[in-house]
């Protein structure tokens, strides 16, 4: 049967894939998608724990509310982030992170 560890492992793998994507890819849009993936991995962990640690016989809905908030914030973040990417593209004609290395020390 499927145990909590299975879910957590899937979550960890998903997070790792996202992390590798952020490190490896140079396209800011892809990096953004990977970030979303990492956030969702965290959500999966929360929901899994919510189900496996019952309170009064029901899933722990505090965790699910937190997931709800995370999704909301992520949506707002994506909106703002994409606006920034658009602005960046206008300025640099590129969506590569190589175009924004001006902060080099």
């Amino acid at each position: 049967m499927v145990s909590l560890n299975h879910y957590l492992l899937v979550s960890g793998l998903l997070f790792s894939i996202g992390l590798v994507g952020v490190v490896v890819r140079r396209n800011i849009l892809t990096i953004y998608m990977c970030l979303e993936m990492m956030l969702s991995a965290a959500n999966l962990t929360l929901v899994a724990f919510s189900r496996f640690r019952l309170t009064e016989g029901l899933p722990d809905y505090n965790a699910q509310v937190l997931v709800f908030f995370t999704i909301t914030v992520a949506a707002a973040e994506v909106a703002v982030g994409l606006a920034i990417i658009v602005a960046l593209f206008r300025a640099r004609q590129s969506v590569s992170v190589g175009a924004v290395e001006k902060l080099k020390g």
């Binding site: 049967m1 499927v2 145990s3 909590l4 560890n5 957590l8 189900r51 496996f52 640690r53 019952l54 009064e56 016989g57 029901l58 899933p59």
Partner: peptide, 16 residues
């Protein structure tokens, strides 16, 4: 806790 399956922690409708 990690080794428990979903069947091990069934939802308890009556109690809730």
């Amino acid at each position: 806790l990690g080794k428990k399956t979903i069947a091990d922690v069934p939802l308890q409708y009556e109690a809730a």
